[in-house]
Design a protein around this nucleic acid. Sequence first.
DNA 1: CCGTAGAGGATTGTTCAACGATCCCTCAAT
DNA 2: ATTGAGGGATCGTTGAACAATCCTCTACGG
Lengths: 231, 231
Amino acid sequence: MAEQLKDLADDRALLGRTSTAERVSDILRSRIAEGYFPPGTRLSEDSIGGALGVSRNTLREAFRLLTHERLLVHELNRGVFVRVLTVEDVEDIYRTRRLVECAVVRGLGEPPYGLDGLAGAVEEGRRAAREGDWKGVGTANIHFHRELVALAASERTAELMRSVFAELRLAFHVVDEPQRLHEPYIARNVAILEALQAGDRGKAESLLAGYLDDSLERVVEVYRRRVGEDG
Amino acid sequence: MAEQLKDLADDRALLGRTSTAERVSDILRSRIAEGYFPPGTRLSEDSIGGALGVSRNTLREAFRLLTHERLLVHELNRGVFVRVLTVEDVEDIYRTRRLVECAVVRGLGEPPYGLDGLAGAVEEGRRAAREGDWKGVGTANIHFHRELVALAASERTAELMRSVFAELRLAFHVVDEPQRLHEPYIARNVAILEALQAGDRGKAESLLAGYLDDSLERVVEVYRRRVGEDG
DNA sequence: CCGTAGAGGATTGTTCAACGATCCCTCAAT
DNA sequence: ATTGAGGGATCGTTGAACAATCCTCTACGG
């Protein structure tokens, strides 16, 4: 009986957590993630509230949730906009990623590790690449690194990085050259995974660090050009 | 509860400045930090909104800010409560601290570093200790580690840890043996600072790791006993 | 032709009242 | 001891109202 109650307690998370504001924010979050609302878009209270059939108060509550996640920015008396990351933001994102992700790898105990999630993300990326779905490759890439962070088995660390990866997607949407951006890193993720499978943390960490440095450089390079266009 | 509401009404005078919701959250945050609202307390929208003289909408926004900082937990249709950390939470907090703080030290470039903030926090702790203000020692201790994280010069990393440290304060308040908890670590912070001043990152990192391990053990030990009392 | 001031419309900021939904407590019945 | 019904309290959401602010378009003067 105790077993069953424990399992039931896990399901509880799937049950009650559905206020209207949260559901609205879920919808908007995924719309933003998929690029339906590109960075810079203004989200009008009237139109979105009307389209979704919720009141302004509820919608504003959803906006606030997403603002806390740094996906929206709020400008007084002007409304909320999908965040436009600056180059400094992108650099800070990668600074955080390098700090945390490398620390996760370094902090791993003795092998073997639970690498199913990582292997799954690698496979996901390969499949998307075969189908020419470069956006899907980018998503799989993010999944790979999210799984990597999950190896630390720290809820707080995972949550921080979830938000950081969501921000990173904003940068990817601005860049909008998904193949050039994501293709080179499929092989590198495989190499990291193989190093971990071999139990070689040191190699995995240095591969990861190199990956992040290269990725930052590439993203910033394209990003700076792209942002320059608008100004 | 009646006492508390009366006192809250006195804070109403401070409500002259920035966004109302932020000011409300400032008030509540410090009230929680000082233990005025102990963990587990339910914060009623009606009574607190009435005592502070703000509308429910504004108060709910303040609640949301604090919920995002993990100081409050929100239960659907039940309201918000001051968070009660579990032992697992405390362990996760220290897991995150160890991951991030050690990574920050490891990731430092070549010396010298900007250690003024750290030195200031050490001095703050010494002064509080001289005055027997053990709660102040705990605060200074947190400041020390916040300054340590600031060395990474990453806005996102700093923000994560700010929230983690705020949570930690909740644990400290439950434990409520500030001298036993904080006194031993004044000297250890000094040692870490000196290692950094000498440019010895490796030593600083191992001192820091040892500090965090000991601190976790001590907090968890007392915390588990303390939580056991309530059950 | 250009720049500026101002009027008007549109949008957001804030509060309030109301109603339904949910939870908790109590009490009676099995 | 467990179940179920009822009542009271609180939360969730909506809709409306009004003030404050921003944006656009127009008209005026240089």
